[in-house]
Nucleic acid binder design. Structure first.
Length: 574
RNA sequence: CGGGGCGUAGCGCAGCCUGGUAGCGCGCUUGGUUUGGGACCAAGAUGCCGGAGGUUCAAAUCCUCUCGCCCCGACCA
């Protein structure tokens, strides 16, 4: 396309309200504009990149046997009430009423709608399996939209849903999607890693997130260099330790100590001159309205998701002062397991400790030499803490590493969570009614684009991998007022176009420097510079954005060269 | 929702403390000179100073309320 005809408003200044690089560059490169918090327009350049990603997704989904559909964004409350999520999903679900006062929501995801479709049209095992997907706008009323299109409220998502007759089939469907996802992100030119993840409000038994490695990522990832283990920090496990024998031989008698205004682990540690590893933190949580005591070693952090899962709680938060006072009989800072009258669960980290220091459930007092089984009972030991540097791999025991990542995709084994609640059933070979087994698979399209920029930029702007590039090549005549330069540029432009290349002709009456800066900013992989000195020798310059390397070519050869570079770079990933 | 910050020309900002005719850089328009990494000269245009109320002879500036946006914590593609 001719630059003069393009709507491509580039900017020189970094927008004051954009924090992350991808957001800054997407605005400066004229890809997006913010309408209001968490809601963006895509301008032509940005939308071209979106469509590139969508196309790669379509090809790989189709190849994996999924079929594209398009479901409504507006969804009736009844479906959500049926699945139980009308109440469970919370404020993120944007609800509204129509003129007849009926309740609706904007779809944040489509399990309900797809399950309804399938249950109405599928009656027999002969019609299974099925995998349907769509690329569609989702709305989630995020608590805090941020980082531009990376976490916004309205966003494009590819979501796929599989329905199988049995576990084995469901497993196969999951594997197919897992493979498709690896292909998609590889073809997008991303450095990524699939990790084990928590299922969150989508539910289900098992899930993997696809993480694009980036310092600015919101997620922490734990991985083992020896084996294949990789997990989201919130999911990362600690192996169950062996119970030591004969601990009771070292038990000392319990001792009460006055500890005025000593509340935190650091304060207790300093006051009693005991290392934090010997102190037990007793945290009172409010689990669906009931207090629960969670015990953990003083130097560790509780992973609330693990606690939530172990307790099977729908809502979990740290208890407020009132609940703590009621549960322990003391203000915050003096809770302990001994004598407490609520459920007590404990992290593995305290399983093999003896002569613990804990709160006394009495203001300004702590206890020494408290021992498990003798002085209090633990309902169950479980993995409840956040993995820390220095911990070992739960699979092979080797050291683990920490990195940051951006979640661009998530695959779930849903099981029968929705099919059961919404009665998606079929008749099997024996004429018996069975519940379908589901999986669901999401990719954030806009987020994938932003993540790609986070991995591919320099001081001058974006550096698109070829498969993502909005245009593959830009032809830059250094001065449009010289007819020779323009004629050659036009020729090359037309030839590139006619052999199917995506090309911009920068026909603006600007100085060369301005054009170079813009080409770099918007990240076009290849640039053909048509200038007077080289053209005198019948040559033009071909510059590669990624490496900064440039070479001279005969005007007659440059088109073929560009064509072969593009073909090679697209083939490399396909 | 809790904590912090910001709303002044299309973009980036100064002015506010100590009230007195709204400014700078970039961009934009016109003319001219330039032309291989964001040129130069000249002449211009552009503002409900986020909104409402108040104090005052006088408010971008002080006070009250409100709306919006960004950042840090509870979520997720």
């Amino acid at each position: 396309m001719r630059y003069l005809e393009m709507h491509l408003p580039t900017g020189r200044e970094v927008p004051s309200d954009a924090e992350v690089v991808s957001n800054q560059l997407m605005i400066r490169a004229g890809m997006i504009r913010k309408l209001t918090s968490g809601i963006y327009s895509y301008l032509p350049l940005g939308y071209r990149v979106i469509r590139k990603v969508e196309q790669i997704i379509r090809e790989e989904m189709n190849r994996a046997g999924a079929q594209e559909v398009h479901m409504p964004m507006v969804q009736p409350a009844e479906l959500w009430q049926e699945s139980g999520r009308w109440t469970y999903y919370g404020k993120e679900l944007l609800r509204f009423r129509d003129r007849n006062d009926r309740d609706y929501c904007l779809g944040p995801t489509h399990e309900e709608v797809i399950t309804d479709l399938i249950r109405n049209d599928i009656k027999t095992y002969r019609q299974l399996p099925r995998n349907l997907y769509q690329i569609q706008t989702k709305f989630r009323d995020e608590v805090r939209p941020r980082f531009g299109v990376m976490r916004c409220r309205e966003f494009g998502m590819k979501d796929a849903y599989s329905f199988d007759a049995d576990e084995a089939g469901a497993e196969k469907s999951y594997e197919k999607m897992f493979t498709a996802y690896k292909n998609i992100f590889r073809r997008c030119g991303l450095r990524f890693r699939p990790v084990e993840a928590d299922s969150g409000s989508i539910g289900g038994s098992f899930s993997h997130e696809f993480m694009v490695m980036a310092e600015s990522g919101e997620d922490a990832i734990v991985f083992c260099e020896k084996c294949n283990y990789a997990a989201n920090l919130e999911k990362a496990e600690i192996a169950r330790p062996q119970k030591s024998a004969g601990m009771e031989n070292n038990w000392q008698p319990v001792e009460s100590v006055e500890t005025p205004c000593v509340r935190t682990i650091e304060e207790v540690s300093a006051f009693l001159n005991v290392p934090p590893q010997q102190i037990v933190k007793t945290l009172i949580f409010n689990a669906d309205g009931k207090p629960v005591a969670v015990l953990i070693r003083g130097d560790h952090e509780v992973n609330e998701i693990k606690v939530k899962n172990v307790l099977g709680a729908a809502e979990l938060e740290l208890a407020d002062d009132e609940m703590i006072l009621k549960a322990t009989g003391a203000p915050r800072g003096f809770a302990g397991a001994m004598g407490i009258k609520v459920r007590v669960i404990a992290d593995y980290s305290i399983m093999n400790l003896v002569n613990l220091v804990t709160g006394a459930n009495k203001e300004d007092y702590h206890l020494r030499n408290v021992n498990i089984d003798r002085d209090f009972k633990v309902e169950s030991f479980a993995d409840l803490r956040v993995v820390q540097p220095g911990d070992s791999c739960p699979r092979c025991g080797a050291a683990i590493q920490f990195v940051r990542g951006i979640e661009v995709g998530h695959v779930f084994k849903l099981g029968t969570k929705y099919s059961k609640a919404m009665r998606a059933v079929y008749l099997d070979r024996d004429g018996k009614e069975k519940t379908m087994i589901m999986g669901c698979y999401g990719i954030g399209v806009g987020r994938t684009v932003a993540a790609c920029i986070e991995q591919n930029f320099d001081a001058n702007g974006i550096i698109w991998p070829m498969p993502m590039a909005p245009y593959q090549v830009i032809v830059t005549p250094v001065n449009i007022n010289e007819p020779d330069l323009m004629k050659t540029s036009e020729d090359i432009y037309k030839q590139l176009q006619s052999c199917g290349m995506e090309v911009i002709l920068d026909d603006r009456d600007e100085r060369a420097g301005v054009k170079f800066k813009d080409a770099d900013l918007i990240g076009i992989p290849l640039r053909i510079v048509v200038g007077p000195k080289n053209l005198k020798d019948g040559q033009v310059e071909l510059k590669v954005r990624k490496t900064g390397e440039s070479k001279l070519y005969k005007t007659g050869d440059v088109v073929r060269e560009v064509q072969s570079i593009i073909a090679a770079e697209l083939k490399e990933v396909s």
